[in-house]
Design a protein around this nucleic acid. Structure first.
Lengths: 133, 133
DNA sequence: CGGAATAACTTGCGTAGGCAACTAGTTGAT
DNA sequence: ATCAACTAGTTGCCTACGCAAGTTATTCCG
């Protein structure tokens, strides 16, 4: 826990300095970017992220206010929405990517051997998957 | 990050339900418990925990108010303190340990093979150590 | 087709905790 | 001995976010 919190904090600080986004916000943009181009439902986004639904509502509000995310009512369910990246959001993500990857390397990846990275990905993937079961 | 946040949240919830402590607070008690019996300096405790100095000040205030931690002025440095567990704090820790270990097993350790656990401990230990350099 | 039970968000409220500025004690240089 | 530079801890301010209680839309059952 000490290590993972330290890494998260380091990434967060770098991101805020370099892109004006928190780690959580940047992560949301990244998830939306890789999701179905039709858009992603908030509940799914919350599940794929580190936030609860309430945290997500507010984070999405912020990202919408910044113009990085757009939303429209879900055609198949009037209660829900579909969230997509705006062009501005896509651009933001593209532009902040290099710095972000460097940051991940410096604070995390560079400390691991390839074997460790692989083991870690498997193990943590398993845990993340189990958690949603 | 998704996995580690999920695990932390699960442990936190269990601890709050079972012991009325947050994960961070419980962790502080555990660190103090294993430190020099003369006491530990707040700055060292912050470094060994997931908190910054300011977060630590407040967490320690809470734990003192609950009677789990005691403090006295550091004899060798009038600015600082030495923090120790009270008997009540030691008891609290002993009593919450079994539930806590079960919680760690259920949400985390049970998902890992012995090999993975070892790799993980090595790798994360390295990262945590590097971060303080 | 009406009405309970459920699901998708949202919001009110409360709290932990970071940052940066502050206070007070210590050390070191002249 | 004095004064500057540093360090330990604290505090004011602010924000993110979790929980639980709403709201609105949907579904399913009679």
């Amino acid at each position: 826990m000490v290590a993972s919190v330290a890494v998260a904090r380091a990434l967060d600080r770098d991101l805020q300095r370099q892109a004006g986004l928190t780690l959580a916000e940047h992560h949301l943009l990244a998830i939306v970017n890789e999701a179905d181009p039709q858009g992603i439902r908030p509940t799914d986004l919350a599940l794929a992220s580190t936030l609860t639904k309430s945290g997500l509502t507010r984070a999405v509000d912020r990202l919408e206010a910044l113009g990085y995310i757009g939303s429209r009512v879900c055609p198949s369910d009037g209660r829900g929405q579909l969230l997509v990246l705006t062009p501005k959001g896509r651009q933001k993500l593209r532009r902040s990517a290099p710095d972000f990857f460097r940051s991940v390397a410096r604070h995390f990846a560079d400390y691991l051997t390839d074997r460790e990275t692989e083991t870690l990905a498997t193990a943590f993937g398993r845990i993340a998957a189990a958690d949603r079961a």
